[in-house]
């Protein structure tokens, strides 16, 4: 009982940390593509931790699995959305801000 509650609290705090990272990344990253990284990865991990932490407190197995199902749904939704937006951004000609040091070599290879 005590161990499960402690683990649950730890997971919830970890989830809040990843949510914070996602929000800070959304505010701090330079362009749409980088912000999509922050949105998909950090937020989904945050929700995963929160869902796992709450699942540890669930009354029944089905209730716990429901939380996992919600997490999987959000995973699927956000990766599909991120890909659709990234693809559309590229079609519209939004050029990503590339790193100055490594951009040239990669650009050359991409044009070929």
């Amino acid at each position: 009982m005590g161990a499960a509650e402690g683990l649950s609290a730890l997971l919830l705090l970890l989830g809040a940390f990843f949510y914070l990272a996602g929000t800070v990344g959304l505010l701090r990253f330079p362009d749409v593509y980088a912000r999509l990284h922050a949105l998909t990865k950090a937020d989904n991990l945050g929700l995963g931790c929160v869902a796992a932490g709450l699942a540890l407190q669930a009354d029944s197995l089905a209730a716990a699995l429901k939380l996992v199902l919600i997490w999987l749904l959000v995973l699927a939704a956000s990766t599909v959305t991120a890909q659709a937006i990234a693809r559309r951004a590229q079609e519209l000609g939004v050029s990503p801000r590339l790193d100055a040091g490594s951009a040239h070599a990669v650009d050359g290879r991409d044009d070929a």
Binding site: F17, A21, G25, F29, P30, A42, R97, D99, A103, V106
Partner: peptide, 17 residues
């Protein structure tokens, strides 16, 4: 990785295609 890049003040993204 995203958390490190977002929260560590000195870290910055180096995007490439």
């Amino acid at each position: 990785q995203v958390a490190r890049l977002a929260l560590v003040p000195a870290a910055r993204v180096r995007p490439q295609l």
